[in-house]
């Protein structure tokens, strides 16, 4: 589904990604762990198409298509989704209006008919109930005044509604208490299927107790330095990242 080949990216001359190679097949859930500053969030933004980064080498293929040639909205329409670490507040845009506009914009780009308001409302209601997203949160401006947990649940609601083929979850566990972590994880697990793949970026192993990955990668200094199964995450939790950062970390 997704192939990243020798990807190099930099910001204002600072090299952040230094040759990422990663292949994710349909239905697989991969986790990327790594210390602060290893380039995890940069990888997620580069996948989504944020233009603060300069790609100096390498390629990203999604179902064989060159992702780096696509605008962010085109990537979304072909089925890529980034659940953001810091979902942005947008005053003046009602959450519900935003959801409907996003869904219908994607459908329009794909040449599908618009979802009519009653059908849309029904779907949103079903999904929001499962994620404990209240009617009031749907009426409010997008993410404005939402708690950390509410923002993350709202991200997963968007993911569930937009039904992407490939999801990147960038530190979705940060800022969540135990209950919110469970709700978010259940929401994510409900979306696991043979046609949908995920890339989960996290600092901590805890999230991976809830969302069990098929493959775990360790990222350090802009490269993937080790890959293994879910036990690798447990090992990291125990030993820390010192082995992968030249032993400097305490």
């Amino acid at each position: 589904m997704l192939e990243i080949k020798n990807l190099h990216a930099e910001v204002e001359g600072n090299k952040i990604l230094r040759g990422i190679d990663l292949t994710i097949k349909a239905g697989e859930v991969h986790a990327i762990m790594g210390p602060n500053g290893s380039g995890k969030s940069t990888l997620s933004y580069v996948l989504a198409g944020k233009d603060d980064y300069e790609i100096t080498e390498g390629e990203i293929l999604f179902f064989g298509e060159d992702v780096l040639e696509m605008e962010p909205e085109e990537r979304a329409a072909v089925g890529m989704f980034l659940a953001m670490q810091y979902p942005i507040e947008i005053p003046g845009v009602a959450n519900m209006t935003f959801l409907k506009t996003a869904l219908n914009a994607q459908r329009q780009t794909r040449g599908e008919p618009e979802l009519k308001t009653p059908d849309f409302m029904k779907r949103v209601k079903e999904l929001s109930a499962k994620l404990n997203v209240t009617q009031e949160m749907l009426r409010r401006p997008l993410n404005v005044g939402f708690s950390g947990g509410e923002k993350k649940r709202n991200e997963i609601l968007q993911m569930a509604l937009l039904e992407p083929k490939f999801c990147v979850l960038d530190e979705t566990d940060s800022g969540l208490d135990i209950d919110a972590l469970r709700i978010v994880s259940e929401g994510v697990n409900a979306l696991r299927s043979e046609e949908r793949s995920m890339l989960i970026i996290t600092h901590y192993q805890r999230l991976l107790d809830y969302i069990v990955p098929d493959v775990v990668h360790v990222m350090s200094q802009g490269r993937i330095v080790k890959s293994g199964d879910k036990d690798l995450a447990l090992e990291l939790e125990e030993k820390g990242y010192a082995d992968y950062t030249g032993g400097a970390a305490a």
Binding site: A48, G49, K50, D51, E71, P72, E73, R75, A76, A77, F81, L82, M84, P87, I88, I90, F98, T101, A102, L103, A105, Q106, T109, Q158, L162
Partner: peptide, 10 residues
């Protein structure tokens, strides 16, 4: 970027 990342054209 947030809006575009959800599929809304520029």
């Amino acid at each position: 970027f947030y809006l575009r990342a959800r599929g809304i054209p520029l």
